[in-house]
Structure formats: C-alpha cells, structure tokens
Design a binder for these strands. Structure first.
Length: 281
DNA sequence: ATGACGGTGTGGCACCGA
C-alpha cells in the first residue's frame, strides 16, 4: 500500500503532470493540496480514467483546496477540523477501506502564516491547536491513522537549507516546531525519519533564484503515522522527479509504503509430516 | 534591503504562497 502527498499548486495547471506521475508511480492513494479550484471544476473523469475512482474533494475558489484520490473505497468523509470554524478548505479526511483493513487518512494543507507576529501567524497557531485537539479525539479510535500533507513547518534544523540564517522566521519558529512536536506527542511518528535519508532532503524549493538547482529547499511536507503502524512502514521517500518538469509545482510528492498488518491466524494448520522418511527422527 | 517566480482574479496590477 503506497500513499502519497503532493501540494500541486493549482490542479487545473498541474493535472497533466499529476496523471503522468501516477502512471510512473501508481500509488494507491494520492493526497493533494492547493487545488485552487471549486469542486465543480475537479477533474473527476481524468482521475477515474487514471485508476482513482474514489475521490474525496474539498475545494474553494482561488486558494487552498484538498483532495484524497484513491483506488480503494473512501468512507466517512469529513471536511476541515471538527469544532473549528474555518472559511478555508484545508482538511479532508476519510476512512480508507481495503482488504487488509481500514486506515483513517487525514489530508491537510496547514496554514502558511506569512510572518511571525502577523494576523496570519496567529491564525496558524490557532489552527494548529484546533488540529491537535481534534486529532487527540480521533486518536482515541483504535483504527490506525495517517496525517499527511503540506505542514508548512520544518520539524528541525535538518529540514532547512539555512537553519541559522532563517532561525525564527516563518516555518522555522519555536512555536511552529512546538506545535509539530505536540502532534507527535499524540502518538504519531514522522515516517520520513524512521529511515536513514540523504542529507539535505527537502520537499519544497522556491521558484526563484534557481533554488531547486542549488537545493535551497525546506522539508515541510510530512507523513505522520500512528505508532501502531510503525512496524508496517516500509519506506518513505521524496520524489524530486516532478520538480524537474517544465512548469512544476514548487513542492515534490512524498510517498510512504505501508505493508499489511500481520494477523494472528486463529486456526493455524497443523504441521504436515515430512515426506522424507526419518526426517523428524 | 529588495526582488526574484508562479498562480489567481476581472486585471492593467494586487494578493498570496513559503
């Protein structure tokens, strides 16, 4: 089971790249952020034709917008954070129903925050706290959960091309990193850091100043899994390939692979006797 | 220090992203 997250910065513009990427990386579930379109403009047919008939879409005009596109059925679709009034379409969650069991998928486009001290920054902190409180309730459910998307936060200095020069600037502030740690404290793990990774691994690069070519980037797109899934996480990688496209998104997709849970067989078959005489003495 | 790049909107630029 492969699940991906990708901020595509306008689905209208990036649809051909999304379809092309899915052909090369046929993940089971693709979580998209920054659709920048309303639901009536969502290219459902194209995704169905690509093998993703189950799409939970939460859009709005101009900004934001998120979607979960899946090969498997999606149930109990929820929009935004329960108990938090929000004009902006930033979260869509659904229960992924597979033969190997259910998984709650929470796809989020976190608030950017612009600049510490700004009105948008305080909105970011309120949004983060609301998310934490809501997920604390969600985590009481025994089913495994995955929280993924564009977090707009570097978890620590390894996630930034210039941690010293950018200290306490947006995506690097103590408040944001504390909010990230508070999410982990709910019982979630940063899937990317479960594995050895190439140094200077980033998921976003500014369009300007040849930032991608110079690898001046940030890792702000994250995959967090509930602890019960830890033993099943096989890999977590950033796919830089689509960032090399002609008119790319500024973000690269992140792909996590999760193996099915090993179940204890309640009726194990008795061991068959060896056909080789005398093998067992 | 600033702007650079790219997307959207009903525009002649401003706003937003990160």
């Amino acid at each position: 089971m492969k699940i991906a997250t990708w901020n595509i910065n306008s689905l209208s513009v990036r649809l051909p790249q999304v379809i092309e990427w899915l052909a090369a990386q046929p993940v089971d579930v693709l979580c998209l952020q920054e659709l920048k379109l309303t639901e009536d403009k969502f290219p459902l047919q194209a995704l169905q034709d690509a093998g993703y008939p189950h799409c939970a879409v939460f859009g709005q005009k101009t900004y934001n917008g998120v979607a979960i596109c899946s090969r498997h059925r999606l149930e109990d679709v929820q929009r935004n954070i329960a108990g938090f009034e929000d004009e902006q379409a930033r979260v869509v969650s659904a229960t992924l129903s597979t033969p190997d069991g259910d998984l709650r998928v929470v796809n989020a486009y976190f608030v950017n925050g612009q600049e510490p001290g700004s009105e948008k920054f305080s909105y970011k902190l309120r949004w983060l706290e609301a998310l934490r409180l809501w997920l604390a309730e969600e985590m009481k459910n025994p089913q495994p959960l995955i929280l993924l998307g564009d977090f707009n936060i570097t978890a620590d200095d390894r996630d930034s091309y210039d941690p010293e020069g950018l200290r306490e600037t947006i995506h690097h502030t103590t408040e944001e990193r504390e909010a990230f740690r508070d999410l982990l404290a709910l019982g979630l793990l940063d899937a990317f850091r479960l594995f050895e990774q190439p140094p200077k691994s980033y998921s976003w690069w500014d369009y300007r100043d040849l930032a991608f070519r110079r690898n001046r980037g940030l890792r702000i797109d994250h995959v967090l899994v509930s602890q019960s899934l830890q033993a099943q996480v096989r890999s977590c990688v950033i796919d830089k390939q689509p960032r090399r496209n002609e008119r790319p998104s500024d973000h690269a997709p992140v792909v996590v692979e999760i193996s099915p849970a090993k179940r204890i067989d309640p009726n194990p078959k008795p061991l068959t006797p060896s056909p080789i005489p005398g093998f067992f003495g």
